[in-house]
Design a protein around this nucleic acid. Structure first.
Lengths: 210, 210
DNA sequence: CGTATATCGATATATCAATATCGATATACC
DNA sequence: GGTATATCGATATTGATATATCGATATACG
């Protein structure tokens, strides 16, 4: 089984598989079937097989997949052992929470610092990581090989922050501001829009009311 | 133009349109075309027309849509004027940030309180909203018509928290724990998985490397 | 007043993801 | 050792979403 390009949907499920496999208790069997994974995660059996096949392809009939090997493959594929550097712009509540969040380490992400314009915030730290002045942003990116930019600013400045990130060599932007950002070809912007998620939830409630 | 059921993808874009329309400066024309919206948001022109048609259907050729009317329609459709009550379980960093976040009010969401097991947190407030003991959770839900449950606990307890929410009458769950939650038919679980988003970002970086 | 054009809504096509189907195969069991 | 069965990987089908195409229409302009 071989695929050159992994679709976004598959990519989003891979960490879910990995997390599940890692959560299995000690004494579990050394192999696991796609059927079992599908049942545990509430997914389609064929979908699981296809997803795993895209990164592994080492399943055996009647047996399933070698759990440890599968975990390793997924980790490698998701680059969890490589360090990728990221910075946050916007040190408000959410920015601070993300800056202090330890869990990113497990995903190979090193959040190095946050940037803000507010002088009262500059110089403080959150989870041992500094909040710096936005003026030092380009220099910082150059010196630290920053690959991912996280935007937690008010929406009024989000687009200009995004533009500056791109100018500083960042090619993947994670946007938590409630604006849809535009970026040139080749730059990925992942919009994490609370309002969109909420619309889905509230749409569900509305449907079951009427 | 008439559609009975709005798809999830459309639902996710509606708040984006609304936000854009509301961000237009004072002196803007009273009408706006789907073409203009599409250009501004980087979306397909036909897609915008179809999405807007699903909730409005009042566009005129050569003119476009009445901006104020469109805003009103979107707000009504997204239920931004109705109050929907929500609670948070898990008063860690993220839980606290969400508890204190003022912006939910604009989306018609009232986050009433957070719940935790840690005695040192119970009794504190964040943004004027209390952190309560999980023991009081069922009673609180019954008394306050809570419709949405937000999970920001460690993943080990996420599923049981979800189950309890459902038992307390909650029919829409917003899950920030890094686990895929299972729920019976009729209950909507919106999984907000950091690891999944990150996988997409890191996949993009990897692709452009190799 | 007639024609050109921007824009709409609707229909058709293409693209993409999810699901179902099927033959192949490695173990379990007789 | 032979047969049954769980499971795999591949292919085909279905379904959903996005894009392209087209006629209709309301204004702009000559």
């Amino acid at each position: 089984m071989k695929e050159r390009c992994i679709s976004k949907s598959v990519l989003e499920r891979l960490p879910v598989y990995l997390h599940y496999l890692q959560s299995l208790p000690e004494g579990s069997p050394e192999t696991i079937s796609a059927t079992a994974i599908a049942r545990a995660l509430g997914l389609g059996e064929v979908q699981v097989r296809k997803d795993l096949g895209a990164v592994s392809g080492a399943g055996k009939p009647r047996i399933g997949y070698d759990t440890a090997g599968l975990i390793e493959r997924l980790k490698v594929f998701l680059d969890y052992d490589n360090r990728v550097n990221a910075v946050i712009v916007g040190a408000g509540k959410l920015g601070n929470a993300l800056l202090a969040y330890e869990g990113f380490r497990d995903f190979g992400l090193s959040v190095l610092a946050a940037f803000d314009t507010d002088p009262s915030k500059i110089g403080q730290t959150s989870g041992g990581k500094p909040i710096l002045a936005v003026g030092t942003f380009p220099e910082f990116c150059r010196e630290n090989r920053v690959a991912i930019g996280i935007i937690t600013t008010p929406d009024s400045v989000a687009q200009s922050v995004c533009d500056e990130m791109i100018a500083c060599g960042i090619r993947a932007v994670w946007n938590f501001a409630p604006t849809r950002l535009k970026a040139p070809e080749g730059i990925l912007v992942q919009n994490e829009n609370m309002a969109s998620s909420l619309a889905v939830l509230s749409g569900h409630l509305k449907k079951n009311r009427g």
